[in-house]
Every structure is written in structure tokens, then in C-alpha cells.
Design a protein around this nucleic acid. Structure first.
Lengths: 150, 150
DNA sequence: GGTGAAACGTAGGCCGT
DNA sequence: ACGGCCTACGTTTCACC
């Protein structure tokens, strides 16, 4: 439960770059024996520092040809309006991220769809029909020079 | 090289939920023998459908107490100005994502820092000193009701 | 934190479909 | 071209120092 030391940080840096590295190779990289290394990794998992492991998929190759960031403003700032909006976002498969932000608008979404037509459907049929929503702005992603999304 | 079939899609779904599942367990989940399953996974990796594997870390537990989305506008739209900006983003550890977007502004960044002071440092000392940059707007993340960052 | 050995999983050749 | 079987090899995992 204590704080992370230098070796822990090195372990985390390696694992966030290659989540499937063998414990043997990881141990060597961080300068530990395999068993000591495994004990640390297990502890980091148990304590929730490491939340899990995921394969990173190529969007184009998995039928995602359209990605946008979308800012959303609500017309009400009540708890229940926010909760209703957030439930709708959680239910929408196209919405991969929904962040509550400061500023003139309340939310920023990352939306992934097969193509522009699929996005338009989401935009008008899902976002457009929510009664709480009163401002939608889409920023279409043309490329991602850097993307370290865990 | 062909398109993905149903078993491939099942493999991808399982691996994006648990990137460290053993090939044995994965094979059972998708209804294949271990060797056939491994061959498919290897092919998906080789063809770039699976880009890699990453450990998902808890931001709070790794010293990240401040997250913001930042829009950036450039004063030049030349190839070389974009390339210089993108190189700077790639070199900045606080920048976890940098997306090139349509609209009045050119980029949206996801920035993670230890705290507001660390963010301010990035904002003024890194972003503020780049000659290509002429518009910076920060949206501080207060919460993420949904986050499926792969 | 390190060592060693048993249990387990991976990876690749081979054959059948 | 793709799935299943078998097996040598490597890795993980655990009790013990």
C-alpha cells in the first residue's frame, strides 16, 4: 500500500509500453530476479495501480473509419440532467470516452464509428434527441501523431 | 490479409478486455484449439490489426492528479511547422495524445501532469515557448463517466 | 531479495480435412 | 488454407533460504 519506489516506476513504464512482456524479460530490464519482479507486479495489480491489460487495436483494421472529438453543452446543470446524459453516453457503443470538463461546455466525448454516415446517425439520432443537450461541436480526427492511450 | 471473420472478432474482443489472457484460455473462450488460436493471434499481430499490448495504470496511483484536454491553433499551416509541433508533442512526456483535427484549430491534446503547478509549467514553458503556437485553450477533466481507452 | 524445481503455457512441426 | 494433435522448450510460480 506504500508509495511507489524507483523500481516500481520502472516496472510500470515497461508494462505500459509492452503489457505482454514476459516476467523474465521484465525482471532483467528492471534489474531484479524473476520472482522478486513477479511479486512486485502482483502487488501492483492487487493494489489497483495496474488496472488491467489490453490489446491495442488498429481502428482502421477493425472497421472504425471515423473518429471525432465532440464537445457537448447541456441546457440544465442539475445532477439529474447530468446523470441522464451520462447514462446515455454509457449506453452508446460509439462513445468510447466521456469526460466532464471545466469551461463553457460540460463534456468532451471521443466517438468512433464505421464511417461518416454512421457518425451522422449517432449525431442526429442519439445526441440530437437527448433533451438535455443544447450544443454539439464535432472535431473530426484526421490523424494522431501521438497516441499513448493505455 | 483478408477480412476479419467472426472468430477473429471474438479474439479481438477478448484481448482488448484482457490483453494478458493465456493463449490456452483464449482458445477455449473462442472455441478453438490452442495452436489454431495462436496462429490467428500471431497473424493479427503481424498484419497490424493488433498494434500491441499495454498495462492500464491508475492515474491517481501513479502521481497523475491533473488531466486536461487542450486545443491548439498554429499560426502557420506549413508542413514543416506541423512537423516541428508534432515533434515537440512527441518529446513531451505530459502529452499522452495528440490528434490532428478539423475545424478552426489544428490539434487536440490529452495532457497528464502531477498537479496544477506541473501543468502550468507545461503550459507556459513548453507549449507557450513553441513559435508555431498561437492559440491554447485548456479544458480540465473533472471526471470521466466513461473511459474505454483501449 | 534470490534460488531452484515442479507446474504450466507456448510455439512449431506434422498430419488430416 | 485452416484446424487439431503432439512435444520440446521456455516461462511462471511457489516453497524455501
Amino acid at each position: 500500500m506504500g508509495n511507489l519506489d524507483d523500481i516500481d516506476r520502472r516496472i510500470l513504464r515497461v508494462l505500459s509500453g509492452d503489457g505482454r512482456i514476459s516476467n523474465l524479460a521484465l525482471a532483467e530490464k528492471v534489474g531484479l530476479s524473476p520472482s522478486a519482479c513477479l511479486r512486485r507486479v502482483s502487488a501492483l495489480e492487487r493494489e489497483g495501480v495496474i488496472r488491467g491489460y489490453r490489446a491495442v487495436l488498429s481502428p482502421e483494421r477493425t472497421g472504425v473509419g471515423f473518429i471525432a472529438y465532440v464537445t457537448v453543452g447541456l441546457n440544465l446543470h442539475t445532477k439529474s440532467a447530468q446523470a441522464a446524459f451520462e447514462r446515455a453516453m454509457q449506453a452508446a457503443p460509439e462513445v468510447r470516452e466521456c469526460h466532464n470538463i471545466t469551461g463553457a461546455l460540460e463534456y468532451i466525448l471521443r466517438v468512433e464509428a464505421a464511417d461518416l454516415a454512421a457518425y451522422k446517425h449517432f449525431h442526429t439520432e442519439v445526441l440530437g434527441t437527448l433533451p438535455q443537450v443544447n450544443a454539439i461541436t464535432s472535431y473530426v480526427v484526421m490523424g494522431s501523431p501521438k497516441d499513448e492511450r493505455a
